[in-house]
C-alpha cells in the first residue's frame, strides 16, 4: 500500500554511494506510510551481483533489470524501465538522487507517469499519510515545503544531506522484466564519456570539498589546495569560485554556486573566497564550513562555522600539516 521505490545508480556496474542515502530515505518514507521500500537497479549483464547490499539500507526487495543496452545510463531506456517498474509496483513514492543522472532521469519519468516531481529535496516528513518535501528555492534564500495531490509522489534528494542509515531489511533480489526494449527506436545516441582529468572525485559527490577563490592569486598556486585535498583523503575534491573559472584558472566542472554545482559536503573549505550570494547558493547547506580570508569583514565569515583571518599562503600549509599529523596518528 504505502510502498516506496528507490532508484539506484550504478557506474560501470558499481553501485554509487549516494544510492545508500536514497534507499534509506525511501525506507524511512515507507515506514511513515506503513509500507516497505523496494530498490530498482538497472544495468548491463551481471549488475545484479552487488544488488543485495541495498538490503542493509532498508530495501525489502531489490528489483534488477539487466540488458546489454542498459549498461550505461541512457535517458530514454532508463526512463522506460523506471516508469514501468513504478506502474507495476503501485508505489506511493519514488526516490531518486539529485545527481546529474537523477536530475536528467526523474523529470522524464514524471512526464511518462504524469505526476509531479519535487527536486533537490533536503528534508521530508510524512504527515497525515502524505509526504511533505522540503526543498531550497531562490538559490537557498528560502525553503519551500511542498505536498503532492497526485500519486506516486516523485522526489530527488540532494546528495550528502541525508545519512546512509543501516536499516536491515529483507534485501531479496528479483528480476524486473520491462516490456520490450527497442534501442533502435531511441533517438539519442551516447557517443562517448570523457572523464575529466585527475580522476579525482567530483565536487558534487565528495564528502569534503576544498574550494579556492580569487584570493589564490593564480592557477600556479593550486598545489597548496591539492596538498590539502590529498591530506583529507580519497573522499575530498577540489572546487572553485566563478571568478576563478572565468579567469580560466580552473575548469567549469569545479565551479560551486548558482551557475555551477550545488554541493552539500560534510566539510567545506572556502579559501580566498569572499562569499558572494551566488557562491553561497551552491554551498550553504554544507555540514561544517571553514573559511580562510585576510579580510575580517568578508561575508563568508557570516556562514562559516570556523574562520581564520589571515593570509591563506601561510594558513593553508599549516592546516594541511596539522591534518597530516592527525591522520598519521589515526
Amino acid at each position: 500500500m504505502g510502498d516506496v521505490l528507490a532508484v539506484v545508480e550504478q557506474r560501470e556496474g558499481n553501485i554509487r554511494g549516494v544510492s545508500c542515502e536514497v534507499v534509506s530515505v525511501a525506507a524511512r518514507i515507507a515506514e511513515g506510510l506503513g509500507g516497505t521500500a523496494h530498490a530498482l537497479l538497472i544495468g548491463g549483464s551481471g549488475v545484479s551481483a552487488g544488488a543485495s547490499d541495498m538490503g542493509r539500507f532498508g530495501a525489502d526487495k531489490i528489483l534488477t533489470t539487466e540488458a546489454e543496452a542498459l549498461g550505461d545510463y541512457h535517458p530514454q531506456g532508463y526512463a522506460q524501465v523506471v516508469s514501468e517498474a513504478v506502474k507495476s509496483g503501485g508505489y506511493r513514492g519514488v526516490v531518486f538522487a539529485a545527481t546529474a543522472q537523477g536530475k536528467d532521469l526523474s523529470p522524464r519519468v514524471a512526464a511518462l507517469l504524469d505526476v509531479p516531481l519535487a527536486s533537490d529535496v533536503t528534508d521530508f516528513r510524512v504527515e497525515e499519510g502524505g509526504i511533505v518535501a522540503v526543498r531550497p528555492v531562490f538559490a537557498g534564500k528560502a525553503f519551500a515545503s511542498v505536498t503532492f495531490t497526485a500519486s506516486p509522489a516523485l522526489l530527488s534528494i540532494r546528495p550528502n544531506v541525508f545519512p546512509a542509515q543501516e536499516i536491515p531489511a529483507g534485501g531479496g533480489v528479483e528480476p524486473f522484466e520491462p516490456s520490450e526494449l527497442d534501442p533502435g527506436a531511441w533517438t539519442m545516441r551516447l557517443k562517448e564519456f570523457q572523464p575529466s582529468g585527475g580522476g579525482s572525485k567530483d565536487v558534487a559527490e565528495a564528502s569534503v570539498v576544498v574550494t579556492g577563490g580569487r584570493g589564490m592569486k593564480g592557477p600556479e598556486n593550486w598545489g597548496l589546495l591539492e596538498d590539502l585535498r590529498n591530506a583529507l583523503g580519497d573522499d575530498a575534491a577540489l572546487g572553485a569560485s566563478r571568478a576563478v573559472v572565468d579567469a580560466g584558472w580552473r575548469p567549469h566542472a569545479e565551479q560551486v554556486g548558482q551557475t555551477g554545482k550545488t554541493v552539500a559536503p560534510k566539510l567545506y573549505f572556502a579559501l580566498g573566497i569572499s562569499g558572494a550570494i551566488q557562491h553561497l547558493a551552491g554551498m550553504r547547506t554544507s555540514g561544517t564550513i571553514v573559511a580562510v580570508n585576510k579580510d575580517p569583514d568578508a561575508p563568508i565569515f557570516q556562514v562559516a562555522d570556523y574562520g581564520i583571518v589571515g593570509d591563506l599562503f601561510e594558513v593553508i600549509p599549516r592546516i594541511t600539516e596539522e591534518i597530516q599529523k592527525l591522520k598519521a596518528g589515526d
Binding site: F143, G307, V309, P317
Partner: peptide, 17 residues
C-alpha cells in the same frame, strides 16, 4: 515558504597560521 534555518553564528577561531 520559510527563511533558511539560521546557521549557528559563525566563529572566527583566530588570526594567522
Amino acid at each position: 515558504l520559510a527563511y533558511p534555518p539560521e546557521r549557528p553564528a559563525g566563529r572566527v577561531v583566530g588570526e594567522g597560521a
